[in-house]
Design a protein around this nucleic acid. Sequence first.
DNA 1: TCCCTAATAT
DNA 2: AATATTAGGG
Length: 313
Amino acid sequence: MGEEVKLSEYDSSGGNNDDRVLWEVGLPGADDLTPLTLQLIPAELASAFRISPESSKSMTDVNRASQNTFSSLQRWHSQDMSSMNNSNFKLFNEETTVTEKDETDLTREGSDPRKLRRVESGGTEEIESALCNENCADDSSANKTLNKRARLVWTPQLHKRFIEVVAHLGIKNAVPKTIMQLMNVEGLKRENVASHLQKYRLYMKRQGNEGPSSSDHLLNSTPVKQSLRESGESGHYLRNTNGHVGMPTQMPYPPQMVQMPMPMIGMANGGMPVGYGGGPSVGFHHQYSMMQQQREWSGNNFGYYHPVASNDK
DNA sequence: TCCCTAATAT
DNA sequence: AATATTAGGG
């Protein structure tokens, strides 16, 4: 999907297109990986829980499995590429809003220019935009008539991206338009960013001449799990308790995350951003010079969790 | 046209 | 409280 991280345009310092390479930086080396031929569950443990012991995998099993994986990846990739064809990147300016590509099915709903949208979080690094479709026909129709857009919800993931971009740009260039472009989040409007930026600046100002910048740690936090649901698709969506459907969005410019195995269960993102302050997820964001302004503002104040984007009429 | 801040509206 | 919108000035 969105791999074509085009940082394009905006002249300045920008040409780092090697995101893909960086993506691999945090990955474990072959030596760090558990051999697939290894049994994950010790025999005693297996029997204790009455788990039928998996037949141990031979190298051929492993090889066959990886071939399957590989070929399915290829299949997926080629189809993805074809659907992306030439429109590698789209600018989501005004009303056109969502268009082709991955979102397809959810996207159409056609014509209606102002879709009710919402950005919501999902997996490790997912940023999704919720969009009302058949799933909430009632209020979607209301929205059509009201002609009103749903409010954007700055989820931790979204905010994180925002922060990254701002840090990356530096105060000089961190202006709404540029930030918006770099964030590369579908449906995000300049106004959204401007508003958020305004608030962000106020927050920073406040923090600046006050005192306790102590407990700040937005950078790493984000132990969002993705576990269930394999990603394979760019078009998976989630629904939250509000009956809204999460929509997939763009790939962020930096190829974010590899999920670390965080033992967490449940919490089927009922629309709620996951816990914070948690795991030190290291690995990524080395590329940017965050760590400066970024820390000032941590989770609390700003829109961290809040379930909703009530657009409900 | 874009940006910024402050005020105001939702 | 979080976002959106508008006003007014650069």
